[in-house]
Design a protein around this nucleic acid. Structure first.
Length: 633
RNA sequence: GGCGGCGUAGCUCAGAGGUAGAGCAGGUGAAUCAUAAUCACUCGGCCGGGGGUUCGAAUCCCUCCGCCGCCA
């Protein structure tokens, strides 16, 4: 049986899972499910990256051991994947022994083969990014990547002789057009490789960073997190521990990655594999990023899309559909509530959902809820077969959106077919019975094929359609034959698959960045007030233009807030939750007519609204664009 | 600064020498099986600006403008 091995990156366990993580994982899941549907043997791997400085620092900040910290955080990913119907076959955590043992074995082999050397190194170190920069890369003490201050560090470290693989890697990319995709990214990597390639520092001194995989032959060092992380792609399928199993899966068919980590995969990982004498994966595919309402998504903007909120409101399948239909894979895309609702209503509710409803209703009404006798199928058999071929081509090329477009051609043809054959008219004429039956049989069988084709994208909906047709879930393997439904077989009409969204009521699609645990204490009920009491409060949109900590206070921040017509100084007790830098530019709700008060000797001319009791949980923000000074009512 | 990409209908995008396209949105009508869904017709473009090559240019070349990558 042919095998298919697909991976996502392993996600940094410290991150709050957002639409970006969900995107890669959903795409991988669709491919995994598609190849299973074709009857192939699939191994789909995802997981978490749990070592490194930031994990160590975050754990220290919470006052817990790093292992306990990651044990608690990994749940957020595991739960989100369950929620999103992700069918991964394994979930790797880099702190697992089955992984760390292989990391160490690989270091031993590299060392034994003379691929490593020790070298004293001095450079500028960016703590948040955990990386060194050369002198000429750093200007005025700032990290070229993140802009934060760097510090001078001198270290002994182990280096991997990456430079010696440069020509070989260039040759490989030249001779394997599918190795790095899309093509624009491939050219970027070739551009990168056109310049001299250095060796790769693959250790960190244990004294500075104990949270990592120890070097097997030198206690003073732990493994650089990137090397640790990349090895997951071979450690889990059995490298060094189960050669037969490893041979079945490696080389991977595809590593899906975000465009931000392409170089790491295309260059570091490829050369490491070469040094180990292993084949390279067939494809490394770098997909794009999501913006939100046209803006870059970031913690400090407070516009990080929470997949959980979308799933709560619209369901798993529509979310999966949207992210893959809306944007060509490889391109950047924009996420907005309007776009989502547009897709949902027109593609899912109106086109597909309604097609299912009307077809089943007619079979129910005209055929006593039983599959009618087949007859001439008006080219639908050929259409469905041709579409299956197109979907196959598109998915082999990672063009999810095109695959869905192709499937929707059938949906549209079926809707048109109902109009042109007008079963309700045929039903009035007893002599038209065979024709009526043939039309409805064709529609039912077409629905079955549609369900099969969408099943990798929307597994629950596909199953629901199958069940309505009186079938069990979509079977894997086997040909997509025409005429599987048997006349006389009972069907079961179900409620609408995708209920149309009429009122676009504002819902949180944006998430707060949560602390792992913030207790919600019961809020005492207050006496009712009238609208006239509420009207006494002048609430306005403000934009934070400056923010600094108030000396000697852990909580208080001194903010300058633009209210459109004026800028006010406001003191807010949100310093334990927010860093001042992260607040610049943020839009907030302000009580504009609060009597000025002095706090720690500084005047405060208003109040910022936030959720939370003693501890602030989240500032109140806006989902749609607003201007400073706007009234809030 | 170097290399590359993009700019086409109100919006999102396809088209890569031969009569400007799709989906959504807008307009008109038909139909009543269906989730106010569907179907048909329709409105809508100096194809970023300018210059060139060509019988003919969204398409090829040059240049300018505006966005965006990768590298420095």
């Amino acid at each position: 049986m042919s095998s298919y091995y697909i991976t996502t990156p392993i996600y940094y366990v410290n991150d709050v899972p957002h639409i970006g993580h969900a995107y890669t994982t959903i795409a991988a899941d669709v491919l995994a499910r598609y190849h299973r549907l074709r009857g192939e043997d699939v191994f789909f791997l995802t997981g978490t990256d749990e070592h490194g400085q930031k994990v160590q620092q975050a754990a220290a900040k919470r006052g817990v051991a790093p292992q306990q910290h990651v044990d608690e955080l990994v749940i957020r990913f595991e739960q989100l994947w369950k929620r999103l119907d992700i069918s991964n076959d394994d979930f790797v955590r880099t702190t697992q022994r089955r992984h760390t043992a292989v990391v160490q074995e690989i270091l031993r082999r590299l060392q034994a083969q003379g691929e490593l050397y020790r070298h004293s190194y001095e450079g500028w170190y960016c703590l948040p990014d955990e990386r060194f920069w050369a002198n000429d890369e750093v200007s005025d003490g700032k990290c070229p990547e993140c802009g934060r201050p760097v510090e001078r560090l001198s270290e002994q470290n182990y280096f991997f002789k990456m430079s010696r693989y440069r020509e070989r890697l260039i040759r490989h990319i030249d001779t394997h057009p599918d190795f790095i995709r899309p093509e624009a990214r491939r050219n970027e990597v070739l551009g990168f490789l056109a310049q001299p390639l250095g060796d790769l520092c693959i250790s960190r001194p244990r004294a500075r960073l104990p949270w990592g995989v120890p070097f097997p032959f030198d206690d003073a060092f732990v493994t650089y997190v990137w090397v640790d992380a990349l090895v997951n792609y071979i450690s889990i399928p059995g490298y060094g521990t189960d050669e037969a199993r490893f041979a079945r899966w490696w080389p991977a068919n595809v590593h899906l990655v975000g465009k931000d980590i392409l170089t790491t995969h295309a260059v570091y990982w490829s050369t490491l594999l070469m040094a180990l004498g292993l084949d390279l994966p067939s494809t490394i595919y770098a997909h794009g990023w999501w913006t939100v309402n046209g803006e870059k998504m970031s913690k400090s903007r407070g516009n990080v899309v929470d997949p959980g909120a979308m799933v709560d409101e619209f369901g798993v399948d529509p979310f999966r559909y949207f992210v893959l239909r809306e944007v060509p894979f490889g391109h950047d895309g924009d996420f907005s509530r309007d776009a989502f609702i547009g897709r949902y209503n027109s593609d899912l509710a109106n086109d597909l959902g309604n097609l299912v409803s009307r077809t089943l209703t007619m079979i129910e009404r005209y055929c006593e809820s039983r599959v009618p006798q087949p007859g001439p199928e008006d080219d639908f058999e050929e259409l469905v077969a041709a579409t299956a071929r197109e979907v196959d081509n598109s998915l082999r090329d990672f063009q999810f959106h095109r695959a869905l477009q192709e499937i929707w051609i059938i949906v549209n043809r079926a809707n048109r077919y109902i109009e042109t054959s007008a079963p309700w008219t045929l039903a009035k004429n007893p002599s038209a019975r065979p024709h009526l039956d043939a039309v409805l049989y064709t529609l039912a069988e077409t629905l079955r094929h549609i369900a099969r084709l969408i099943s990798p994208f929307m597994p629950q909906s596909a199953r629901a359609i199958f069940e309505s047709l009186g079938l069990a879930d979509v079977p894997n393997g086997g040909p997509a034959a025409w005429g599987v439904l048997k006349a006389g077989h009972p069907i079961h009409k179900a409620p609408p698959l995708f209920p149309r969204t009429v009122t676009p009521h504002p819902v949180r699609i944006v998430m707060d960045i949560p602390e792992p645990t913030v207790a919600v204490s019961p809020t005492p009920q207050l006496a009712p007030i009238g609208i006239e009491d509420f009207a006494k409060i002048d609430l306005r949109v403000g934009k934070i233009v400056a923010a600094e900590r108030v000396p000697k206070s852990s909580k208080l921040l001194k903010l300058q807030v633009d209210l459109g017509t004026e800028t006010r100084q406001v003191l807010a007790g949100i310093g334990t939750k927010y860093d001042p830098e992260a607040l610049i530019g943020r839009l907030v709700a302000v009580v504009a007519n609060l009597k000025p008060a002095k706090l720690m000797g500084l005047e405060s001319q208003g109040m910022i609204l936030a959720a939370g009791d003693k501890e602030v949980a989240s500032l109140i923000g806006f989902v749609e664009p607003v201007q400073p000074g706007m009234k809030i009512k």
